[in-house]
């Protein structure tokens, strides 16, 4: 299941106190990493009836691989959002059939081969939001804020390109809305594990993000950990609904 998307597990958005703040931080302690893994497993299992494994992953058997790094969103110390980053094996390369040559071609087209190479690639994945916090703009804000270099470039001294795999509606509602541009690589092959996720009307594809030029600086340069007011997050979400989102991608 892929890159970036939000899932709804609770029927009603919760009324939350606007004076609260959301802390966004990278999971570093073992307890934080496990919290993120289990949170993702719980939501994916409830929405898509799939299970996880850290040592055997096979999309045709509805077994998903866990990401290598995690970022968490906490309100009052409670985990309400999480996302992962593959830094070793990427989903898009392993299951999406994308080769390094295809990635390098895109990097060259963007005149960025002096900074980036397909040898250094990562993948943003498994964005989940607790059901009763859905519909408040938290997911979209968390998505944007976690495209900070603090997270994307963790444990790396050189810049990495970012891969993503999602259905087209997610590229529109999250990436374009957040001013994160994506470059289409190719359609994602059909796997059993995605049957409850995408549809012919809303197919999945693999895309490339060249962070320094594709991610709006306000997000790429956002320092993490950081605390953000829920009131501002909600106002921002309301404003975005009025604004027409930018182009989907090119």
């Amino acid at each position: 299941m892929t890159g970036a998307h939000r899932l709804i597990i609770g029927p009603e958005p919760q009324r939350i106190d606007d004076s609260k703040r959301m802390l966004i931080k990278i999971a570093t302690r073992r307890s934080e990493i496990l919290q993120c893994q289990y949170f993702i497993a719980e939501i994916y299992n409830s929405a898509y009836n799939i299970v996880f494994s850290s040592d055997i992953a096979d999309l045709d058997q509805a077994i998903e691989p866990y990401p290598d790094r995690y970022v968490m969103g906490l309100i009052d110390g409670k985990l309400v959002a999480a996302a992962g980053l593959y830094i070793r094996r990427t989903y898009v390369a392993t299951y999406g059939g994308i080769t390094d040559d295809e990635i390098d071609t895109k990097i060259t087209e963007a005149n960025m081969s002096h900074r980036y190479s397909a040898k250094r690639k990562r993948e943003y994945t498994k964005l989940v939001v607790r059901g009763n916090y859905n519909g408040l703009g938290i997911g979209r804000f968390f998505h944007a804020a976690t495209h900070s270099r603090s997270f994307l470039e963790i444990d790396s001294s050189e810049p990495n390109v970012l891969l993503v795999c999602a259905k087209q509606s997610i590229y529109r509602s999250m990436y374009s809305a957040n001013r994160i541009q994506t470059r289409i690589l190719k359609p994602f092959p059909h796997y059993a594990v995605h049957e409850k996720y995408c549809s012919p009307d809303d197919p999945m594809d693999s895309r490339l993000i060249i962070p320094e030029i594709d991610i709006a600086p306000q997000w790429y340069n956002l320092p993490l950990p950081g605390e953000f007011s829920l009131q501002e997050i909600k106002q921002r979400a309301a404003k975005e609904i009025r604004d027409e989102p930018g182009p989907v991608s090119w």
């Binding site: 096979d58 045709d60 509805a62």
Partner: peptide
Amino acid sequence: RLASPAAYEHAFA
């Protein structure tokens, strides 16, 4: 010991 008949459906494809 896959998790569901659907998982086997694809393993046995």
